[in-house]
Simulated scan of single mutants.
Amino acid sequence: MAEQKRTAIIEAATELFLEKGYDGTSLARIAESAGVSRATLFKQFSTKAALFDAIVTEYWRPEAGDGPEPAPGDLRAGLTAIGHRYVDLLTRPGMVALYRIVIAEVPRFPELGRAQFDLGKMPYFTSVRRYLESARDAGTARFDDADTAATQFLGMIADYVLWPRMLLVDWSPSRGSMERVVAEAVATMEARYGVRSDSQERTTGHQSAAE
């Protein structure tokens, strides 16, 4: 029952934050919308900031059905899987509105920006960096700075999928175009950081000799 009430509170708060903004939403209104008492709400979330933290964490949580993290032995397959998951996250309903709330409110409520960064962006970024480091350990990638490599990969995707939506209300790229962006980002990472296997080198050599 406590988990059901927590879910109801988060869902009601999310809807109200997206509709009325952070400053325009009160905890009392959230409790009313969620169908719980104020005492129940305060037992779950002592402040509005704590409730917003929970919403950010939920938005950035990869869906449970995504399956295990990709293995580091195939850089292209691993980065492709990660890229598609990132697209799915960035295009979740409400994600753009959440970003807009943070950007609009952060001058008065800097803790919102910190929550978006520390509880949302950074955990996902860390998972990508960890995969790249495992690929380096497996010998399928070579780079000096995993942070830079992860930033480059995610940036190539977000620059097309997310950031135009912040200013262009009619920006709605097709699934096919987003898949092409992921494929190009993967190809760029492979060209810059990928390590060719012996079998790939032999195949390339045979093709060159045939030509």
Rank of each mutant, 00 (worst) to 15 (best):
S174P: 02
A81L: 05
T47G: 06
G65N: 11
V161Q: 13
T126A: 14
A146C: 03
P173H: 11
L89A: 05
G139L: 06
E105N: 05
A12L: 05
L154A: 04
K5C: 02
G73H: 12
A13V: 06
A104W: 01
M1E: 14
R175N: 10
D145F: 03
G155A: 05
D88F: 00
A2Q: 09
E15T: 06
M122G: 01
P62H: 06
S174L: 00
S172Y: 07
T188Y: 10
D170L: 01
E184H: 10
F153E: 13
A183W: 04
P123M: 08
A141W: 12
Y59L: 03
P93C: 09
R142H: 11
G120D: 12
R114H: 12
K48P: 01
A187Q: 12
T7K: 13
M1N: 05
E211I: 00
S172M: 07
F17V: 01
L112K: 02
L98E: 10
H206W: 13
T40G: 02
R29N: 15
R85L: 10
L154G: 08
Q4S: 07
D88L: 04
P110N: 06
V56W: 05
I82G: 01
E15K: 10
P93A: 10
R85T: 11
A2M: 04
G155R: 08
S127T: 13
K43P: 02
F153A: 09
R165G: 04
R129Y: 13
G120M: 04
M178L: 09
E63W: 02
E201R: 12
A135D: 15
D88P: 00
M156Q: 15
E184T: 05
A64K: 11
T148Q: 08
G94D: 14
P123A: 07
V181I: 09
L41K: 06
G78K: 07
A31E: 15
S208D: 14
I9D: 14
Y193P: 00
R130K: 15
T126V: 08
F45M: 07
A191E: 13
L16V: 01
T203W: 09
E32Y: 08
R100M: 09
A149P: 01
L154R: 11
D66R: 11
G83V: 12
L90C: 06
E32A: 07
T126I: 06
A183C: 02
T57Y: 02
T14E: 15
D53I: 00
V181A: 09
W171L: 02
P110V: 03
W60I: 00
E69D: 14
